[in-house]
Design a protein around this nucleic acid. Structure first.
Lengths: 164, 164
DNA sequence: CTTAATCCTACCAATTAGGTCGGAAAACTT
DNA sequence: AAGTTTTCCGACCTAATTGGTAGGATTAAG
């Protein structure tokens, strides 16, 4: 497995927040129920997102979380770095910079192992895939998805071909 | 961590075999010593490579392993699939086909979670990076590497600008 | 002042990672 | 034939990580 459930749940949480039309805060309890995720665990995950300033919170009754930034400006590499700490394809890659790009530790100077060459490519592929996916894109995907299931959510016309 | 040491050691082992000029078999013991890896563990790893028909073995004294195929035709996605079983970015991805490309299990029909969309992209990025890297490329990289360190290995000319 | 929420820290069980051990079987050497 | 070198195979083992729970403190709304 590449990513843990922290990334999985964290992304789902962000998508859920992004689906909210207004920016009134949503409680974790509501998200936990709608997504079927354990509340206590979500609490720890959302703390990572908050530390990365991807979400904002308001405490107390009627409190909850909302997105701190425009979903279109939030790329998934930022999200994954916030949740998982880094994007390292191999344990010999050790945290260094702030963008999830890390260096191979058992390569000191100009020396380089051939495998480092490979893992760097893989890392690049992952980061590029993450970077070109925005939260807005995932939110749009999610909205289109249940629009296809529930034809007329509120004020939509033409609920045709909804057979089966 | 994306890949485990199985992938790391397995690739290093293959590179080591690829560096061998003739195709006389190399013993695991020799590789374990030159790479500083535990022999018993390497045995289990090379078994995976053999099962995938990436290496061949001869038993007994003066036996060992050699590459079963032209290094230029061996792409890293094949290697990683042989070693790790599959390339799944997320635990909800479940083994299916034979090329390391797997499907998300909690998406049954046409339904798709937004995160699946993301993990598929990541998986694609990884597989593409692996697929465009051949064993021959890594071997060449490795050979060039210690050529740079030890200027004149055998019959090489012009060991110039080797200062510092 | 009660309730609903975020926050925070410690604990915990199951799985996996990474590796060891002991020995069997095969092929070569003497 | 005996011994040595190797592959082969399966059980075992330890430490770390994952994925979670528990319990409470804090903050704000009604």
């Amino acid at each position: 497995m590449i990513f843990t459930t922290k990334a999985e749940y964290g992304v789902r949480l962000l998508v859920e927040l992004g689906r909210q039309p207004n920016d009134t805060p949503v409680s974790l309890k509501a998200i936990a129920e709608s997504e079927g995720l354990p509340l206590a665990y979500l609490e720890r995950i959302v703390a990572l997102l908050k530390r990365a300033e991807l979400v904002e919170s308001t405490r107390g009754a009627h409190g909850g979380y909302r997105l701190a930034r425009d979903p279109a400006s939030v790329t998934m590499d930022q999200v994954v770095v916030a949740l998982e700490g880094s994007v390292s394809p191999m344990s010999c890659f050790v945290d260094d910079s702030d963008d999830g790009r890390v260096l191979c530790s058992h390569v000191e100077d100009g020396e380089a192992c051939a495998t480092k060459f490979l893992w760097l490519r893989v890392q690049g592929g992952v980061i590029e895939a993450l970077r070109r996916t925005t939260l807005a894109e995932l939110v749009a995907f999610s909205l289109k998805q249940d629009e296809a299931q529930t034809p007329a959510p509120l004020g939509s016309a033409l609920p045709l071909h909804s057979a089966a």
